[in-house]
């Protein structure tokens, strides 16, 4: 197990190294001087442009040798210096991101975990109840084919705009300042519900279908047939099948992380929910290069950490890895 996790950790370190290098390399590979590109892209007053240019010049350090630039880049990164935002000049990018992270987690963690659990349960049920199968399966395919932002838009329009049941923008009402009170928490949850629901539903469809197909596959497997011919009750056979089908679902969670992140970003944009997704939209609209780069690093780091947590869980659940039989 230690070896397995060690291997994973090595891959993640390599990935991080690779990602940071790409991040550093891209501006330097683009035709022309990156500072000129960035400054000229904004229609600015001459004096502001001059300030910006001097800031960028100092940040990129293009006059140093390349290896020095590269080392300094890592140095700044490890010190947590991600530069300064243009959109909310002169706030540091790191602060903006750290402010956004709690909202991301508040939205994503419940949506991912609950949809995964519910999807697995319902998918397993669908594998043995005919009418459920006939209704869940088409629904699941529709949900998982739905772009996150569209379901978000539809929910916001129908339940928010038309029915007026939920607010459609922000993490809490405009007038209130965040503080610890029942009123604020209620307001927070009320704003949270629609973005959560749209993330939950799309993911739920995918997990339910995945589980249903995996279970049917497992029920056809040799070990199921053997148990059946030895008169084991369906309950036992399904229990085994469910457990074995969980393993690929855990791997599936890791594989889906990229898509989930993109979905969360899109959902936050629809609901103007102040997480990283919202930052990305603002950064794109405002040509805020350092903010984008910060979001990039944050997403990569988050995905890597999530991957590693999933690996640990997988190693704990799959006896084959626990006993060191395979490094799958």
């Amino acid at each position: 197990m230690g070896r397995y996790l060690g291997q994973k950790l090595l891959i993640y370190s390599l990935t991080f190294f690779f990602a940071v290098t790409i991040d550093w390399l891209i501006p330097r590979l683009m035709p022309g001087n990156p500072v000129d590109t960035l400054v000229s892209r904004m229609a600015l007053r001459a004096d502001v442009a001059a300030i910006l240019r001097s800031y960028y010049l100092q940040a990129f350090q293009l006059d140093l040798p390349l290896w020095q630039q590269y080392l300094n880049f890592w140095g700044a990164l490890l010190r947590g210096d991600l530069g300064v935002s243009i959109w909310l000049f002169p706030q540091p990018v790191l602060k903006l991101i750290l402010d956004a992270v709690p909202y991301d987690l508040f939205l994503l963690l419940p949506a991912v975990i609950l949809s995964w659990i519910a999807g697995n349960q319902v998918g397993a049920m669908a594998a043995r109840v005919r009418w459920l199968d006939n209704s869940i399966l088409p629904l699941g395919y529709i949900l998982t084919a739905t772009p996150y932002m569209w379901l978000a838009l539809i929910l916001a329009w129908s339940l928010g705009q038309v029915a007026g049941l939920f607010p459609i923008a922000g993490a809490y009402s405009f007038g209130i300042r965040p503080h610890l009170s029942w009123m604020f928490i209620k307001d927070l949850l009320w704003h949270w519900f629609l973005p959560f629901a749209s993330l939950f539903l799309v993911m739920f469809g995918g997990w339910a279908i995945g589980m249903r197909n995996m279970i049917i596959y497992e029920l056809e497997a040799d070990y199921s047939r053997y148990l059946e011919s030895l008169g084991a009750p369906p309950r036992l056979i399904r229990k085994y099948a469910f457990r074995n089908a969980m393993l690929p679902q855990i791997t599936g969670l890791a594989l889906q992380l990229g898509t989930i992140v993109a979905g969360a970003v899109a959902t936050e944009i629809v609901f103007a929910y102040p997480g990283t997704g919202y930052l990305i939209l603002q950064a794109v609209l405002n040509q805020d290069y350092f903010l984008l780069q910060g979001c990039f690093l944050f997403i990569i780091t988050g995905v890597l950490i999530a991957n590693f947590i999933i690996d640990i869980i997988y190693a704990l659940v799959d006896p084959r890895i626990r006993t060191g039989m395979t490094g799958a």
């Binding site: 497997a221 040799d222 070990y223 047939r225 053997y226 148990l227 011919s229 085994y240 457990r243 074995n244 393993l247 799959d318 006896p319 084959r320």
Partner: peptide
């Protein structure tokens, strides 16, 4: 069974 070598639940 014919598939005796795979007849046991792997987990």
């Amino acid at each position: 069974p014919q598939y005796a070598m795979n007849a046991l639940n792997p987990t």
